[in-house]
C-alpha cells in the first residue's frame, strides 16, 4: 500500500513525566481522509503539529514520502504538507483574498511577494470552497463557517499533498459543517490526503476512509470506520455509554450518547401527561 505520511512511534511531553503522546504510529495513504477522534487533551493537536513538521517529536519520527519531515527545509515542507488551524481571529482585518494568498508563501522565495499567478491560484481556491463572492471582504467580518472555509481555501492555495485540519467543524452550524466536509471529500478525489481531528464521530462515519481513536496520548483503535466506530470502542475512549444506530442492512448511520435512565418512550409519556 502506498503511504504519503507515516508516523513511527511518536512520543511527546510538554512537561517531563507527563507525556501527551505515547508510542503513536500511523500511516496516511494517498487521497485518504483520516479522522482523529478522542477526548479533549488526548493529544490530537500536538499530533497534528508533529505530523505537519512544525513541532519536533521527542521520540520517533515522521516520514513524508520516505524522508524525515524535520530534515526537509521549511519552505519545501510547506509546499507538500499544509496545516489548517482552528478558527482564529487575526489582529488585522486582511481581506479574504489576502488571507488565502498567504498560502502561497512557501513558493515565494526569501524576499518575494505574490505575483499574478499566485493571485490566480488564490482566487481559484476561493471559488473551490464557494467563497468567490466574498473575496474583497475583511476576513474579520465573516461568520465562523466562512472563516473556516477561507482557511481551507488557504490550505488549497498552498497546493500540498497532505492537509492537516485541526477541528475544522468546531463552532460551525450543521450547514457549514457539511460544506466544509463535502469540500474535503471532493478534494480527496483529486490528489490531496486529509488528516482531520474532530469531536464529531458522525462526521467520521460519513466521510472517513480511516479512523484513529486516541485516549490519553495513545491510539486505542485504528482502522476502517465500520471496524472502529463501534459502541465498545467509543464508549471506552470517551468514558461514557455510546449507542450506534444501524440501518436495516446493518450499516452504521448515527452515533449518539446514551442518557442516564433515558427510555425511548419517555418523551411520549410526558406528552400524554401534558
Amino acid at each position: 500500500m502506498a503511504v504519503v505520511l507515516q508516523a513511527e512511534a511518536l512520543g511527546y511531553a510538554y512537561q517531563p513525566g507527563q507525556p501527551v503522546l505515547r508510542d503513536v504510529s500511523l500511516s496516511v495513504a494517498p487521497n485518504a481522509i483520516v479522522f482523529l477522534l478522542g477526548h479533549n487533551g488526548c493529544g490530537k493537536t500536538t499530533l497534528l503539529e508533529i505530523l505537519g513538521g512544525i513541532r519536533a517529536p521527542q521520540a520517533g519520527r515522521v516520514l513524508f514520502n520516505g524522508s524525515d519531515i524535520r530534515r526537509i527545509p521549511a519552505h519545501k515542507r510547506a509546499q507538500r504538507v499544509g496545516m489548517v488551524p482552528q478558527m482564529h481571529s487575526p489582529v488585522f482585518a486582511y481581506t479574504v483574498r489576502q488571507v488565502v494568498l498567504m498560502g502561497r508563501t512557501p513558493y515565494l522565495g526569501l524576499f518575494g511577494t505574490p505575483g499574478r499567478q499566485d493571485y490566480d491560484i488564490a482566487d481559484e481556491a476561493l471559488e473551490q470552497v464557494g467563497l468567490g463572492a466574498l473575496r474583497d471582504r475583511p476576513y474579520t467580518d465573516l461568520s465562523g463557517g466562512e472563516r473556516q472555509l477561507t482557511l481551507v481555501a488557504r490550505g488549497l492555495a498552498q497546493q500540498t499533498d497532505v492537509l492537516l485540519l485541526d477541528e475544522p467543524t468546531a463552532h460551525l452550524d450543521p450547514h457549514n459543517q457539511r460544506s466544509v466536509l463535502e469540500t474535503v471529500a471532493e478534494l480527496s478525489e483529486n490528489r490531496v490526503s486529509f488528516v482531520i481531528s474532530s469531536h464529531n464521530p458522525n462526521s467520521a462515519l460519513l466521510y472517513a476512509h480511516h479512523v484513529i481513536v486516541m485516549k490519553t496520548g495513545r491510539i486505542v483503535a485504528a482502522g476502517s470506520p465500520s471496524d472502529v466506530l463501534t459502541e465498545d470502542t467509543l464508549s471506552t475512549s470517551y468514558d461514557m455509554p455510546v449507542e450506534v444506530i444501524y440501518s436495516e442492512d446493518r450499516i452504521a448511520r448515527a452515533i449518539v450518547p446514551r442518557r442516564n435512565g433515558w427510555r425511548a418512550d419517555k418523551t411520549a409519556v410526558k406528552q400524554e401527561q401534558v
Binding site: 503539529e49 512544525i54 519545501k76 489582529v91 488585522f92 498567504m102 508563501t105
Partner: peptide, 16 residues
C-alpha cells in the same frame, strides 16, 4: 503579513 498571523501559522507556511 504572515508573521502577523502568529508563530504557529507562520511556521506552517514555511517561515522561521
Amino acid at each position: 503579513n504572515v508573521l502577523s498571523l502568529g508563530d504557529g501559522e507562520a511556521q506552517a507556511l514555511g517561515l522561521n
